[in-house]
Simulated scan of single mutants.
Amino acid sequence: MKVTANMSMSLDGFVSHPTDGIDTLFRWYSRGEVVTETDGDYDWEFKTSAEEAEGLEDAKTSIGAIVYGRRSFDAAEGWNGRHPLGVPVVVLTHSVPEGWPREGAAVHFVTEGGVAAAITKGREVGGGKDVVIGSADPTQQALDEGLLDELTVDLVAAMLGAGTRFFDNLKGAPYELEQLWTRPGNGVVHLGYRVIKH
């Protein structure tokens, strides 16, 4: 079981734009011919290259839970209670949002203990499978606390110029990474790294 961080990131290092949000960064999910069904109540589907679709199907089986911060939860409107990949979600937040938790929703909230507690909760609800962090702040915290094993970046062929950076406020930098793989996509390059821990 490993802890990985993954986000789609612009060439200039942003994972969200103040007005565009993640729309530009997530377009690669719809640029291909191979359909990967979403889990839950969604009126869209992933349409990627065959190799990217294989990666999405692998994610459905290897990921036990995804950890997000509160901003991601709010922007996604709680994923309607069920993430598109069909895995439980753990939200790291100072307070549980009004109207949550909801019956039947695979969304859990951690309000104390920081990112370490969120990862522990992810292991608990994820049945011992991998835990993925999908927000910038929790990723930065996990790096600084030595909790991150791998880092994957979907590097999108776009520059946003403003917004939330993936790698801001790294207190423990510099970090060394070992490159594990590079996979080309349609308007995106997928990069995988191991975090070297000393």
Score class of each variant (00 low, 15 high):
Asp58Gly: 15
Glu52Ile: 06
Gly78Asn: 04
Ile66Glu: 13
Trp44Glu: 07
Ser72Leu: 09
Ala76Thr: 12
Ala75Asp: 11
Glu45Gly: 06
Asp43Glu: 12
Lys47Ile: 00
Ala53Lys: 08
Arg82Trp: 09
Lys47Glu: 01
Asp58Trp: 10
Ala59Lys: 14
Ser49Cys: 01
Val35His: 13
Phe73Gln: 00
Glu57Arg: 14
Gly81Met: 11
Gly32Leu: 08
Gly78Trp: 08
Thr48Lys: 10
Val34His: 14
Arg31Asn: 15
Pro84His: 11
Lys47Trp: 01
Gly64Trp: 05
Ala53Val: 08
Asn80Tyr: 00
Ala75Val: 02
Thr48Pro: 02
Val35Glu: 15
Arg31Phe: 13
Tyr42His: 11
Asn80Pro: 00
His83Gly: 02
Arg71Glu: 03
Glu45Ala: 12
Ser49Ile: 00
Lys47Thr: 02
Val35Cys: 14
Ser72Met: 12
Trp44Pro: 00
Asp43Lys: 11
Glu37Pro: 04
Thr48Met: 08
Glu51Thr: 11
Trp44Tyr: 09
Phe73His: 07
Asn80Gly: 11
Thr38Asp: 02
Glu54Asn: 03
Thr38Ser: 08
Arg70Gln: 10
Thr48Ala: 07
His83Ala: 07
Thr36Val: 15
Ile66Trp: 07
Asp58Gln: 14
Leu85Val: 13
Ser72Pro: 04
Asp74Val: 06
Glu45Met: 07
Gly32Asp: 03
Gly81Tyr: 10
Gly55Cys: 02
Thr38Arg: 08
Asp39Thr: 02
Gly32Ala: 11
Ser72Gly: 14
Trp79Tyr: 05
Gly55Ser: 06
Lys47Pro: 01
Gly55His: 06
Asn80Ala: 02
Gly55Lys: 07
Glu52Cys: 04
Leu56Glu: 09
Ala59Trp: 14
Lys47Cys: 00
